[in-house]
Amino acid sequence: MTDSSPATDPAADFSPDDAEVIQEPRLWHKDGWTARVIKNEDDDGWAVAMIKDGEPEPALVGPWTMGRDKKNPKPLDTSAFNTLVKTASEVLRRHEQQLHAQLHKRMSVETGEGDVEVTLDIVPDEYEPYALLSALDAFGERIAQVRVAPNFKLTKARAQAWAEGGFGRVE
């Protein structure tokens, strides 16, 4: 009989932070990233794929340098790996910024009570996506909030009309 309690199960103590460091000529794994040198499907060259732990797709795929023999890829090294991590991290950061910009809009409108910030936050739910249109006063306190369609277009004119209409239901 085998005891599989957490105290004796080696897999129970494993976390991604404990992952071993791999430093092979075509495969490096360190600090949550994996660099894998792969054969380029389009030609005789090589490519490198950078994959963040837990992600199904590479964050970055790019050409890789041929070695001295002009046949095999140049081996990965510390400098190259660090540069690839920095580049792949920047790609992910820009993607997140772009997604945030698509899902969150903000503008200011003038009302009789002062300036009001109108925000549109899209909730990309897989089954029932929607958006929240909100009005915030000068102190950041929410004055009103209504649920709108996820394809609602927030424009200055629509925000102003919503404010002038008393922040009621939006069609």
Rank of each mutant, 00 (worst) to 15 (best):
M1W: 02
A7C: 05
P10E: 09
A11F: 14
A11C: 15
F14R: 15
P16K: 11
P16F: 08
P16D: 05
D18W: 14
D18M: 14
E20F: 13
H29R: 15
T34S: 06
T34Q: 10
T34I: 13
T34G: 05
A35D: 00
R36C: 07
D42E: 12
D43W: 11
D43T: 13
D44W: 15
G45T: 08
W46G: 07
A47M: 09
V48L: 06
M50P: 02
I51H: 09
I51V: 08
E55D: 14
E55Y: 11
E55M: 14
P58H: 09
V61Y: 03
V61T: 13
W64V: 03
W64Q: 07
R68S: 11
D69S: 06
K71A: 09
K71H: 01
F81A: 03
N82Y: 01
L84P: 02
K86I: 08
E96K: 10
Q97I: 07
Q97N: 11
Q98M: 09
Q98E: 09
H100K: 12
A101L: 04
L103T: 03
K105Y: 11
R106T: 05
V109I: 11
E110L: 05
E110N: 08
V116E: 02
T119Q: 14
V123N: 06
D125A: 01
E126H: 10
P129V: 00
Y130L: 03
L133C: 09
L133E: 02
L133K: 05
A135D: 03
L136G: 08
F139P: 01
E141K: 13
A144T: 09
R147L: 10
R147E: 14
N151W: 09
N151C: 00
L154D: 02
R158V: 12
A159R: 06
Q160P: 03
W162Q: 05
G166L: 11
G166K: 07
R169K: 15
R169Y: 11
R169W: 12
